[in-house]
Nucleic acid binder design. Structure first.
Lengths: 105, 105
DNA sequence: GATTGATGCAACCTTAGAGTTGCAGTAATC
DNA sequence: GATTACTGCAACTCTAAGGTTGCATCAATC
């Protein structure tokens, strides 16, 4: 599991509109059309954002009647946070090691 | 402290080249020119990436002689991870609540 | 003080992505 | 079965971002 699998997730999270979509979905599952009613963007734009979010596993879709209902997957967010934290720790340790070496000189 | 301050951080982390820069800096502080020697991109491109990283607090710079030496700030990464984790938890709780309500119907 | 090696700035190219409009397809409902 | 409402697909615009080349600048060294 390399960090390169994380990059698309961060790229997905690096957009305000997608956050507002995620926030709206946090209030409860919804379809692209339903979201378009609440957000100041077109349904098509939202659909593409949802595709991006689904691609990186932040969102899931279920067919309900004639609508595609999306829901947030909290796990992916937690996982990402955990991995990010681990990387931060690694860097902290490495930086501490470098600092120690530098001070010993 | 709103999530909108987080978005630029994620946007910064959503680029492979910037990760390779961060990884290179993890090995020890370095200048843009030094990094250009190790990475397959121009110094100018690297300089701009470093500006972006510095903008969101992922990197810091110190003048050493005639060179600008950059270093990773592990804290920002850890903070981001913590905040992301908190958001994930909130969503998990909210989703659990919604699921519970749905099941009670 | 001339040279060397670093940064800073500007113009430019190219592509990816966010957004739009328009229309076709398709599944419920009356 | 006609209508209604949602999804799917395609073409188009526009801007931002990643990358490049070229030159100016400025500090350190010989």
């Amino acid at each position: 599991m390399t960090i390169s699998t994380l990059v698309p997730v961060f790229a997905a999270l690096g957009d305000e509109t997608r956050w507002s979509i995620l926030a709206a979905l946090g209030e409860g599952d919804a379809s692209a059309s339903a979201l378009a009613g609440r957000l100041p963007v077109t349904r098509q734009a939202i659909a593409r954002h949802l595709a991006v979010l689904q691609e990186v596993g932040l969102v899931d879709s279920v067919r309900v009647g004639r609508e595609l209902r999306y829901r947030v997957i909290g796990t992916q967010l937690s996982d990402t946070a955990r991995r990010l934290d681990r990387i931060g720790d690694e860097w902290d340790r490495r930086l501490a090691a470098i600092t120690r070496i530098a001070e010993e000189l």
